[in-house]
């Protein structure tokens, strides 16, 4: 934004509203009605496509609604009690949490590293920006297709590279100990570009005079990074971590596609959304699947709250 546009709105506002004291209330009234019209389209969409499905889903979780039957009847807490005693629910929830734990740190740290790198270079910046962001533009089906072949034992590139340096082959997608890691690596490659872009924008927003002042005080590069860059990126980091946690907790597409919908050996890569899908769409039990969806909803709310408290606590000291 240029300074001139920053100054423009107040002047314009003053010019159009030289309202006499008596007419002020009426003007405000009219303008608030106009505002309502502006928010109406969103409010309607929000109510119809978000609030209503959420309430309908909650109601469905108390019924035995099936995809293959017209009617349904109220079953009280039957779905909820079945869910609490269903080991597959907890196993798949654990898969989702484990994936979040192993995918979030690299997705934040690598994005930061790439942003710092790109921010430093002056000539090849466009190339790095393009390279780091390009995978994010690919649809998930393409990404999983590429990586499924890369991970193949016998003729895949990843195992070829391992063997070239004298390491044994790994059955990435068919071994229950490596399948989730393999999916996490693919996810990092695919989505780190988005976090990278957020970090890069934030880095470019740090005024150069702060570094100048620090340089005059004889600060070394590490101190500059530790005490200027990181604190000034704090809000961006909080945003990225929040978005990333929610995105990782919503793991489904790539896990489903890379295990051909089977969830991997011993369901080692079936996230909770995978189990919701299996119950609701393979098993047609929408009522039960709705109950599990609410469990995931609760988990996401709790994780977001915890994360919010952690970061707002740090914000005080910064």
């Amino acid at each position: 934004m240029t300074p001139s546009t920053d100054i423009a709105p107040p002047e314009a506002a003053r010019a159009v509203s030289p309202a006499p004291p008596g007419g002020r209330a009426r003007t405000r009234h009219v303008s608030s009605w106009a505002g309502l019209w502006f928010v109406l389209p969103f409010t309607v969409l929000f109510a119809v496509f978000l609030v209503w499905p959420m309430l309908a889903g909650l109601w469905t979780s108390f019924t035995d609604r099936s995809l293959g039957r017209a009617g349904s009847s109220f079953v009280g807490l039957a779905n909820w009690s079945e869910m609490l005693g269903d080991p597959a629910v907890w196993q798949s929830l654990w898969v989702t949490l484990l994936f979040t734990l192993i995918s979030t740190p690299p997705l934040v740290l690598i994005a930061l590293g790439m942003a710092l790198l790109t921010h430093r270079v002056s000539r090849l910046g466009w190339f790095l920006r393009f390279s780091f962001f390009a995978p994010f533009l690919l649809p998930v089906a393409v990404v999983t297709l590429i990586w499924t072949w890369l991970y193949q034992p016998g003729f895949g590139m990843v195992n070829g590279a391992l063997q070239a340096v004298g390491l044994p082959e790994v059955n990435w997608l068919t071994d229950k100990d490596t399948v989730l890691v393999a999916i996490a690596i693919t996810t990092v490659w695919w989505t780190v570009g988005f976090n990278f872009l957020l970090y890069l924008a934030a880095l470019q927003g740090i005024p150069a005079y702060v570094y100048e002042a620090a340089a005059l005080d004889g600060v070394n590069p590490w101190q500059r990074f530790r005490h200027i860059t990181l604190p000034l990126l704090h809000r961006t980091t909080a945003l990225i971590v929040t978005l990333q946690l929610v995105a990782s907790l919503k793991l489904f597409d790539q896990a489903y596609l890379m295990t051909a919908g089977a969830g991997g050996p011993d369901y080692a890569a079936r996230p909770i959304i995978g189990y919701i899908f299996d119950s609701g769409f393979t098993g047609l039990r929408i009522g039960y699947a709705s109950a599990i969806s609410y469990l995931l909803f609760a988990v996401i709310v709790v994780v977001s709250l915890v994360q919010f408290r952690l970061f707002s606590g740090k914000g005080k000291s910064a």
């Binding site: 059955n171 068919t174 071994d175 229950k176 100990d177 919908g261 089977a262 969830g263 991997g264 050996p265 011993d266 369901y267 079936r270 299996d278 393979t282 098993g283």
Partner: peptide, 20 residues
């Protein structure tokens, strides 16, 4: 593509690779 096949395939893969 129904659940019995999915359960069997997910569990029996471990017999092939020796993990169970």
């Amino acid at each position: 593509a129904a659940q019995l096949q999915n359960e069997a395939s997910s569990l029996f893969a471990g017999v092939h690779n020796g993990s169970t």
